[in-house]
Nucleic acid binder design. Structure first.
Length: 578
RNA sequence: GACCUCGUAGCUCAGCUGGAUAGAGCAACUGCCUUCUAAGCAGUAGGUCACAGGUUCGAAUCCUGUCGGGGUCACCA
């Protein structure tokens, strides 16, 4: 602005202030400090603003239909803390998009097939003794997860001697091809000095040995039978998957999330082959001598990327292409949000680029809501080392903490057993959701099970508390939600609270544009803090001026509503008392 | 090795489309419940915004480089 006016910042501000105050009745004055223009606003402005905000209850509707895919679990293991970040983010993004006016479809693409599923199945078949969730203390997903671990342990037992031999260069395999690959790899291992290389070759050898074991061969055989739709295998698969779904659903319910569309990889894993053909015809893809199909993305700064194997079978990205088309066909979506960890940044970059080159109309609406890992104080979560934080355990711990904390405060006289349960539940979920969602999704975050989850300070329960306290006032005042006279002089804290309320819409809009629930958390916290200042500065029930008292009740009521609406966007439910 | 990403108070994080003295919470210390719920409020203390250059009247913010953490570069998913 200074550049345009050609005058000093001070002078520019002077002139601008002068003009603005003259032209706008809501402005009562201005001053300039250090080149910054400060405008003063007239008393009635605040009441009128608040009034206008109350009249507006929803944002303009949009045409563009949005799909948010999240959770997307494997059916061989129970959910853990990493999944929780994904699930909470996905649900919240969907709610924010809805609030911003978009029609939203929440989708879950379940990875219910493949070698890892067969591992659980095989282990259960051999070592399970018919154990099932009805008779077991374990939830279905935990039961299946248990057999996945059993498989890995048995495999290790079966192969440890051979592996030791193989690393000593003394492994003999009956399959000549495998034997040759082993010897080649072993030679490279011996010749390599780079530590990274060494561990890679060791890994390769481990895979060779494991894949030759009886257990892995049976497992691969089972996968072949599954693909051939063998009755017995399909039955076992259906039965165990049903256990897992029942378990997952209980966790989803507890987290308060849901889905509108379910996709299963058992149905989608063959999709995308026609797209490969289409791409070959249009020259977007090309074929190599061995029959494998590729796309050259070097002009976009990326590499060549395989889209179909030489034997005509699919790779990961093949089915993603097919699924993208399927989603579009089924739901007519213009935007597709994939909530997936940032280790897949490259994959999605490639996928979106391919769909664009294939001329898909929806391609520019594809977005990877990428998020960082959740670390523990001990470092990365590793299932092999047993350091994963199980979702169900965590939820239970949170619940117990909420209960203990509430009982300690002793403010719940007269609440029934079920009301108390609901309170503990909502408090624990609020604490968890806030803790996870308030940090920028892109960043990796640290989760300390002992210390992280708090009920004081910048937390979900803090916001819930502000809400409950307001509701308590409104109850005793019997406030009917009507205002009378807006022309009252408000306290400084009240003005800044009204200002915050007026920012709600733009915050939601920005959060939707950036797919960022953290923006909502931050706003809701700030609003609660802002109102808590009001609460401490002014008295409502004791106010004798009827207009002022009424205006204050109105502000309280608007704040409560906005808190509630904001909390809903991150999946947190309020309570009337706590 | 190439590419992507992050580095702000003791700890966990905001701020990042350039603007006033860099903000919260936790932990520590002080106050405030005979007044609407103290899961609250007010205050003290705590910072070379990783480092070095550059662009600009002005840089935590933009650009380049260095260092450090993480990730990706599979005919795995």
């Amino acid at each position: 602005m200074v550049r345009r006016s050609g005058k000093s910042p001070e002078l520019t501000a002077q002139e601008l202030g002068e003009t603005l105050v003259n032209a706008t009745p809501q402005l009562s004055g201005y001053n300039v400090i250090k080149g910054f223009l400060n405008l003063s606003v007239s008393a009635s402005y605040w009441g009128e603003t608040l009034h206008a905000l109350a009249a507006q209850k929803s944002f303009p509707q949009k045409e563009e239909k949005v799909m948010v895919e999240y959770s997307s679990p494997n059916t061989n293991k129970p959910l853990h803390l990493g999944h929780i970040r994904n699930i909470l983010m996905g649900y919240s993004i969907a709610e924010i998009m809805k609030a911003a006016g978009y029609p939203v479809v929440k989708a879950n693409l379940i990875n219910d097939r493949g070698i890892h599923i067969c591992k659980s199945m095989l282990a259960w078949q051999r070592f399970g003794n018919g154990e099932n969730p009805q008779d077991s203390v374990l939830k279905g997903d935990h039961l299946v997860g248990k057999y996945y671990v059993v498989f890995e342990n048995k495999l290790q037992e079966q192969t440890s001697e051979e592996l030791a031999a193989a690393l000593a260069g003394e492994w003999v395999c009956s399959d000549a091809k495998i034997q040759k690959r082993y010897l080649d790899t072993y030679e490279k291992l011996i010749g390599s000095k780079d530590e990274k290389q060494v561990s890679k070759f060791k890994g390769d050898i481990k895979d060779l040995v494991r894949n030759q074991s009886e257990l892995m061969k049976s497992c691969q055989e089972m996968l072949r039978q599954w693909e051939a739709k063998d009755d017995a295998v399909i039955q076992l698969w259906s039965k165990m998957n049903a256990w897992v779904y029942e378990g997952f659903n209980r966790t989803y319910d507890r987290l308060g999330v849901n889905f509108d569309a379910m996709y299963y990889e058992s149905n989608t894993y063959l999709l995308g082959k026609d797209i490969v053909q289409e791409g070959l015809n249009s020259g977007v893809f090309f074929k190599k001598e061995d029959g494998s199909v590729w796309i050259d993305l070097s002009s976009d700064g990326l590499d060549e990327k395989l889209v179909q194997r030489g034997d005509g079978t699919s790779v990961y990205i093949t089915q993603d292409m097919g699924t993208a088309d399927l989603k579009y066909k089924e739901h007519g979506i213009q935007r597709s949000v994939y909530v997936v960890g940032n280790e897949q940044d490259y994959h999605f970059k490639v996928l979106f680029l391919i769909m664009e080159k294939l001329g898909r109309s929806y391609a520019k609406g594809m977005y990877h809501a990428s998020y960082g890992m959740v670390d523990l104080p001990s470092g990365k979560m590793k299932s092999r080392e047993g350091t994963v934080v199980d979702a169900d355990d965590l939820l239970q711990e949170m619940y117990d903490t909420a209960k203990a904390k509430t009982e300690e405060l002793g403010k719940t006289d007269g609440m029934s057993e079920s009301e108390l349960h609901e309170l503990y539940h909502r408090l624990s979920i609020a604490a968890l959701k806030f803790f996870i969602l308030k940090v920028d999704p892109r960043k990796r975050m640290l989760f300390n099970p002992q210390e992280s989850i708090d009920f004081q300070g910048d937390t979900g329960p803090f916001v819930m508390y502000t809400y409950a306290r307001i509701k308590s006032i409104l109850r005793t005042a019997n406030f009917d939600g009507e205002t009378m006279n807006t022309d009252v002089v408000l306290h400084q804290t009240e003005m800044s609270c009204i200002k915050m309320l007026s920012e709600f819409e733009s915050v939601v809009k920005t959060a939707a544009e950036e797919y960022n629930p953290a923006a909502i958390c931050q706003y809701v916290l700030d609003l609660a803090k802002s109102y808590n200042k009001v609460y401490n500065e002014v008295s409502i029930l004791k106010e004798e001026n009827a207009s002022l008292r009424n205006m204050r009740l109105f502000l309280a009521s608007q704040t409560a509503q906005t808190l509630q609406r904001g909390l809903k966007l991150i999946g947190v439910e309020t309570v009337e008392r706590m």
